[in-house]
Design a protein around this nucleic acid. Structure first.
Length: 845
DNA sequence: AGCACGCCGACT
DNA sequence: GTCGGCGTGCTC
């Protein structure tokens, strides 16, 4: 408990009673905390970071987090009472609260929004929460005695099969007496479980187990049983196996735990029917046990040792040495240099020191392979936090961190929200990845920056890893503030791939293009496939074609909600908008002129796949993009098919650039490099360089030299030269000069304001006013715009953008954010702009 | 974010 | 004459 009160004086007189107030964080986008009064008799129950239930407004009952407790009554209003206290220990720890406050301030959002993003929804009880009888609960023999109100609920829930009750129902049933306590108690006793109204149907993971019926446990009775079963060899086998698994002779109590039913039926000479007969005859009894979704498998073979190479050892020593002087170190290692092994060693060392470890990875790099590898080393101490996880699994990880069960967590962006309180090492792998930045729902945070702040608050060291570090990060190492360790050799004998530029314009002029393939790429593919080697093709656009065009009247289908053309998806036979999800059937004829001459223009992954199936009929081609990986296990399926060489060619979007380490890939093709380079953004070159180098890294592993072919209409562009020589430093020098000259990060901070309104004119006017207000407060030179972005309408909202550039200095930044907030308020106070949405994105990517 | 209060159109 | 549209203001 984080709060202590001075109750030393014995029996305080009633008039001396302390009145406490709790400032709570509501899970809503409200700018401030709300103060509720704690009932006297509950003074001991307030926990900072614990959940409480309050009435908010006339109707709503919300669960929220206590952020502070004090004795100052609000001057301007009468505080309502806290209705109930749910937790007797914090679910949100003090270090988390501190970090969340920082996030809210830095990313210009409310604490409520941060809390909302942070808490797994199963921790957010709302009036929509419902309860249901636990499937493993047997009414006639409860494991714990039930109180009267508890019994009442059980009866009500038992009347119908699988009946659910809302909190309101429970309240009515019990006459509104502190029913949350009752519910919580029932949950603890595994009598009921809680689920969110619309959330997927929770089913606790249940394992069928069997044990010896209790009257057989005694040794002499057991002997008698053997006699009885003498003529039934199958059943005897099962029994012997059971006694082998559960040493009832040595330890009578072991029988209570029993063993998994599956363990008695799995091996071939044991028959499941014999097990069932034993159960039927009352020799064995079957029972259900709820198990963790993260099994406790601490088998001894788990601790698989491995040895680091000379280069890895040197790098590791260097990192540790730099950590003695610096809190942040960048491990700049070429793809395939073996960074993961170094991470594992460092994690092991950090754990020996008693601290927690957070290992962040981008979504697409967090694969089953890496988790298995980490599991082998860290066993049950490892927690995994992934976006494909169900809410129940998330809560298990959250609680596991709180209880200390998980000391290492490998996870994606949102893992920075977990309740760490003693982190000693944070690893941010692929630190340059833009997927660490959350864009759409607020908080628009960058997990790398949040991780750095968490490390700062908790005195941890941070290791950033990348083959292509972000310019901002590398700048910090150059300035000497952060450490730098480089790994320039690939693990094993694998050399870096040979990169060849192929001029698409030349081929096109010579009429030699085969669909979107140059003859060079085509013949190289054929050659590699003939050698039974695999190919990865990268095309940064999904769908079949980005738009279609009527050859007779020029009609191009556009999205009705967004200012974009609709992409053609051949397989689904649809036209789709990639911004709002609108879709429509592909028309047979032009709706404008009736012509049937509809032509696809441009190409995406689907067309590449389609063409290849015709051009390389002997090859097995698979596509990996958002459309083919939507289903739950499809991503893993595609990867394992490719790994097992079921597929020969993998065509994909950015997904193919990360984390796929396959020894047999000897060719990588980038179909259209130009679309990546020409992007209206100051980070376009950085992103392009990173993408090319990362995807190139997929070619050639384990001693095989790979080849990369980049198709471009303009091979003379400066960036290619640096990609071909894999010269990060040269790229950095070139890029940093540009950044300095044009005043971009790391020299300046960028805050991007977006103004949205359904009416284009109003959006423009609001943006103009906002710009004026910003200029007034921050100066003309700090404010750029307003300007309509390239895609100026999304989901029926017209957009206007304003870019604010600020000095990096902390105090300036803090002051500026106050000024921006003030400017936003001026616009918002204008009643014609009430409907406008003004969004600030700090450090946009 | 919701939800209530409040002032102007198409309906029994 | 009313039911209901969603604009705007508040929630401790």
């Amino acid at each position: 408990m984080s709060l202590t009160f001075d109750f030393v004086q014995p029996e305080p007189a009633a008039t001396d009673r302390i009145t406490l107030f709790a400032d709570v964080i509501l899970p809503l986008p409200l700018p401030k905390l709300y103060t509720y009064r704690v009932p006297y008799e509950m003074n001991d129950d307030v926990v900072i970071g614990g959940r409480v239930i309050v009435q908010f407004g006339a109707k709503k009952t919300l669960s929220c987090i206590v952020a502070a407790v004090h004795e100052t009554p609000p001057a301007l209003y009468q505080a309502k009472y806290v209705l109930e206290f749910i937790d007797d220990a914090p679910v949100v720890t003090q270090p988390q609260l501190k970090l969340f406050r920082w996030m809210a301030e830095y990313y210009m959002c409310t604490l409520g929004e941060v809390i909302n993003a942070a808490l797994p929804s199963a921790l957010k009880l709302s009036s929509e929460s419902r309860i249901q009888l636990h499937p493993a609960f047997v009414r006639d023999e409860p494991a714990y005695p039930l109180s009267e109100p508890e019994e009442k609920i059980v009866v009500a829930l038992s009347t119908e099969d699988g009946k659910a009750m809302t909190f309101t129902d429970v309240g009515e049933l019990l006459g509104n007496t502190n029913f949350h306590k009752v519910i919580k108690s029932l949950i603890q006793k595994d009598v009921i479980f809680l689920f969110e109204h619309l959330a997927d149907k929770y089913s606790p993971k249940v394992v069928k187990k069997v044990r010896l019926a209790h009257h057989f446990v005694e040794e002499n009775v057991l002997e008698g049983l053997f006699q009885q079963l003498a003529g039934r060899p199958k059943q005897l086998d099962v029994l012997m196996r059971y006694l082998q698994k559960v040493p009832v002779y040595q330890n009578v109590h072991a029988n209570h735990q029993g063993t998994e039913k599956a363990s008695l039926t799995s091996s071939p000479h044991l028959s499941p029917s014999a097990v069932n007969t034993l159960i039927k005859n009352g020799v064995l009894e079957q029972f259900d046990v709820i198990v963790s979704r993260f099994p406790l498998d601490d088998s001894p073979e788990a601790k698989m040792p491995f040895t680091l190479s000379e280069a890895q050892l040197t790098a590791q020593a260097d990192i540790l040495k730099q950590f003695t002087e610096k809190d942040i170190v960048l491990l700049h290692g070429v793809t395939g240099a073996g960074k993961t092994e170094i991470y594992i060693e460092l994690i092991r060392k950090a754990l020996e020191g008693g601290g927690q470890v957070l290992y962040l990875l981008p979504e697409i790099a967090l694969t089953a392979q890496i988790v298995t590898r980490l599991m082998r080393v860290f066993g049950t101490r490892l927690g995994v936090y992934h976006s494909k996880f169900s809410d129940n699994e998330r809560v298990e990880v959250w609680n596991g961190v709180l209880s200390g069960r998980f000391q290492v967590v490998v996870g994606v962006r949102s893992a920075v929200f977990l309740p760490f309180d003693n982190v000693s090492l944070i690893i941010v792998d692929e630190e340059h990845e833009s997927s660490y930045k959350q864009y759409d729902p607020s908080p628009r945070y960058n997990a790398r920056e949040v991780a750095l702040m968490m490390a700062n608050f908790q005195g941890a060291k941070t290791l950033l890893g990348s083959a292509t570090p972000s310019v901002e990060t590398y700048y910090q190492t150059r300035a000497g503030r952060w450490g730098l360790v480089s790994l320039t050799k690939r693990f094993g004998e694998a050399g870096l791939p040979e990169i060849e530029l192929v001029d698409t314009r030349k081929s096109r002029d010579a009429k030699k293009m085969l669909n979107h393939f140059t003859p060079e790429l085509m013949s190289e593919m054929e050659r590699k496939l003939a050698m039974q080697e695999q190919v990865i093709l990268f095309q940064n656009r999904r769908g079949y074609s980005p738009f279609i065009n009527c050859l007779d009247c020029g009609w191009i289908p556009k999205c009705k909600n967004c200012a974009v053309s609709l992409s053609y998806h051949k397989h689904a036979h649809e036209l789709r908008c990639h911004y709002c999800g609108f879709h429509d059937r592909m028309p047979v004829e032009c709706p404008a002129c009736g012509s049937r001459n509809l032509k696809t223009v441009g190409f995406g992954t689907e067309k590449i796949e389609d063409d290849l199936k015709v051009m390389l009929p002997q090859a097995n081609v698979q596509r990996m993009d958002l459309d083919t990986t939507r289903a739950k296990n499809s991503y893993q399926q595609i990867i394992s098919d490719f790994e097992n060489q079921v597929t020969n060619v993998l065509v994909g979007t950015q997904m193919v650039t990360k984390g796929l380490d396959f020894a047999n890939v000897s060719l990588v093709g980038i179909i259209n490099a130009d679309s990546i380079i020409h992007y209206p953004d100051f980070r376009a070159h950085e992103r392009a360089f990173q993408m090319f180098v990362q995807v190139s890294g997929r070619a050639g592993r384990k001693g095989k030299k790979g080849k990369v072919i980049i198709q471009t209409a303009d091979p003379a562009q400066v960036i290619f030269d640096k990609v071909i020589r894999n010269d990060y430093l040269e790229f950095y020098e070139y890029e940093i000069t540009q950044r300095r000259e044009y005043g971009f990060p790391p020299f300046m901070r960028v805050i991007r304001m977006t103004v949205k309104h359904v009416d284009q004119l109003v959006a423009e006017q609001a943006a103009i006013l906002l710009t004026q207000e910003l200029v007034e407060r921050l100066g003309r030179e700090a404010v750029l715009g307003p300007e309509a972005p390239y895609i100026f309408r999304i989901r029926n909202f017209y957009l206007q953008e304003i870019t604010i550039k600020l000095d990096r200095e902390h105090t300036v930044l803090k002051h500026a954010k106050g000024q921006i907030a003030a400017a936003i308020n001026v616009v918002k106070d204008q009643k014609e702009f009430r409907q406008a949405r003004l969004v600030a994105d700090v450090d946009p990517m």
